[in-house]
């Protein structure tokens, strides 16, 4: 909810309450690169395909985030963290995605902890 409020206030300050395209959707070049990873090297992707996938993935992100945000609202918390996202995926029926994401989150936190304990040397 805090992120949404910040986003809306910045939009109001800049464009009088209009949500810009680059704020609502993922960058189309990045979407194209991710789509290209799974395809053979000589495959081509039309712009219509990228735009359609751009809409789908952006809506999916809003869908999962909305579920996590609702849980935080009920528990009167302001910060949506990784555990809330994993819970939201499980709550919406995407159990096959929740488990790999939980393991990824655990590994990510371990890396962050190692980085905090061993700061890079300044030479």
């Amino acid at each position: 909810m805090m992120d949404n409020v910040g986003g809306s206030s910045s939009n109001i300050a800049e464009n009088s309450g209009i949500i810009r395209e680059q704020d609502r959707l993922l960058p189309i070049a990045n979407v194209g690169k991710i789509m290209k990873q799974i395809l053979p090297p000589n495959a081509k992707i039309s712009k219509e395909s990228k735009e359609t996938m751009q809409e789908c993935v952006s809506e999916f992100i809003s869908f999962v985030t909305s579920e996590a945000s609702e849980k935080c609202r009920k528990e009167r918390r302001k910060t949506v963290n990784g555990d809330d996202i994993c819970w939201a995926l499980g709550s919406l029926g995407f159990d096959d995605y929740a488990e790999p994401l939980r393991r990824y989150l655990q590994r990510y936190r371990e890396q962050e902890l190692d980085r905090a304990n061993n700061p890079p040397k300044r030479g």
């Binding site: 809506e59 809003s62 869908f63 909305s66 579920e67 609702e70 709550s91 919406l92 029926g93």
Partner: peptide, 11 residues
């Protein structure tokens, strides 16, 4: 999906 109904309505 029954689990996704409320989320879809909210969105």
């Amino acid at each position: 999906n029954a689990k996704q109904y409320h989320g879809i309505i909210r969105r």
